[in-house]
């Protein structure tokens, strides 16, 4: 019978229409600015810089090694090194970035800078509501706009932030262990040298 297929389709549409009134699964849209679908944990948009503690300037993890700048495919990161050095979380003296700009009108959110950063200092934000009328003022994020606390990182990507913290703790432990081993070795060497010296002293004394 001609028209049977169309009828069958109509039944389907009717089922979906009525379904949308009582089955939340069939009601798939939300009124955007008023309602928002909660962000997925891994959702990423643009990168930001993490700082530890409360002061962003002293706590910034970035050591301006410029690896991300080199690896970023569209070349939207711009870094200038500072002359002064500051101690990082391991106590090593490290450079700080004097300028750290990300041009988010060019950034494509690919996350490669995050992957290559060896200091866990750049991570992806999930804030997607950027808008601005000026190409450079509002879409060129500078260091102070990029700096966000580790607490914030924990609030947007809890699992990943936890892992990052663990990596850092591990790094710190490794570093301390290494320092300790180094110190021990040094002490041992000193001791040996001292005993050797003593021995040789004794020997020279004997010879005399």
């Amino acid at each position: 019978m001609i028209g049977k297929g169309i009828l069958k389709g109509m039944v389907e549409t009717a089922r979906n229409l009525t379904g949308s009134f009582h089955d939340p699964d069939r009601l798939t849209t939300v009124e955007y600015p008023e309602q928002k679908i909660p962000a997925k944990e891994n959702a990423r948009n643009f990168p930001f810089l993490i700082y530890d503690g409360d002061d962003w300037e002293t706590g910034l993890r970035c050591v301006s090694c410029q690896i991300c700048e080199k690896e970023c495919p569209p070349q939207c990161i711009y870094i200038e090194k500072d002359k002064e050095k500051k101690p990082d979380f391991l106590g090593k003296m490290q450079m700080q970035p004097k300028i750290f700009d990300i041009d988010v009108s060019v950034c494509m959110g690919c996350q490669i800078c995050v992957e290559v950063c060896p200091f866990e200092s750049i991570r992806m934000d999930n804030d997607f509501e950027y808008a601005g009328s000026d190409r450079f003022k509002s879409l060129l994020l500078t260091k102070d706009q990029l700096a966000k606390s580790n607490k914030y990182y924990h609030s947007i990507h809890p699992t990943e932030a936890q892992e990052t913290d663990e990596i850092r703790v591990q790094k710190r432990e490794d570093h301390l262990a290494k320092e300790k081993a180094k110190a021990e070795k040094l002490a041992k060497a000193k001791k040996e040298a001292a005993s050797k010296a003593a021995l040789s002293k004794a020997e020279t004394a004997k010879e005399e």
Partner: peptide, 13 residues
């Protein structure tokens, strides 16, 4: 590449 078009300026470089 030819040099006959307007560049969209970038902040650096």
């Amino acid at each position: 590449e030819p040099d006959d078009y307007d560049y969209e300026p970038t902040p650096h470089g």
